[in-house]
């Protein structure tokens, strides 16, 4: 039997300004599709701790937009938007992903990225593949740095919890 991909797999293709993340989930394709496309469900898992995603508006159809913010523990918000370019339920959708302000005006200092999210049935599990293509090497670098900030906040929170649990 094929090993279940329960850890996230990464491919960094720096030559093409492209990153691919992949993971399998022990759930049917329709449920995984809904977790990715229903904003009430997205709000429950999308934000990396300690950030929490909050949808402002969701219009899940080609030409529509998901406008959301990541709320930090101090109440600070980072806004993001995804413009849906194509939708093939339940196997794939593509978006243009940008950082923006509260009104959805794109942040001009970092260009939008092209995302392709695909879903494939693997036995009773579902494999999710997220391909992120940046318009330039510089954008990819900026994106990885942003991961840095959020990822580090997450790592630090885990460390804090560990230290707190071990306190006297």
């Amino acid at each position: 039997m094929k090993a279940f991909l329960n850890k996230t797999a990464y491919t960094k293709d720096l030559e093409h300004n492209r990153v691919v993340v992949e993971r399998e989930f022990q759930a049917g394709i329709d449920r995984v599709w809904r977790a990715w496309t229903d904003s009430e469900q997205l709000d429950q898992w999308w934000g990396p701790k300690p950030y929490k995603a909050e949808t402002k508006s969701m219009d899940f159809r080609v030409g529509g937009t998901w406008l959301y913010s990541m709320v930090g523990p101090d109440g600070g918000r980072h806004w993001g938007r995804e413009d849906f370019l194509s939708i093939s339920k339940p196997t794939a959708f593509e978006t243009k992903n940008s950082f923006c302000d509260e009104e959805g005006n794109p942040n001009p200092s970092i260009p939008a990225r092209h995302w392709s999210v695909t879903f494939a049935e693997v036995g009773s599990a579902t494999r999710v593949t997220v391909e992120i293509i940046c318009p330039s090497a510089e954008t990819l670098e900026r994106l990885l740095e942003m991961g840095f900030k959020e990822g580090f906040a997450a790592a630090h929170e885990n460390l804090d919890a560990l230290l707190a649990a071990s306190g006297e």
């Binding site: 850890k7 996230t8 990464y10 990153v19 993340v21 993971r23 898992w45 999308w46 990396p48 701790k49 999710v128 997220v130 994106l143 990885l144 991961g147 840095f148 900030k149 959020e150 990822g151 580090f152 997450a154 790592a155």
Partner: peptide, 10 residues
């Protein structure tokens, strides 16, 4: 960090 972010999200 990018990996940490996506690991946590997934």
């Amino acid at each position: 960090p990018f990996v940490v972010l996506w690991d946590q999200r997934f």
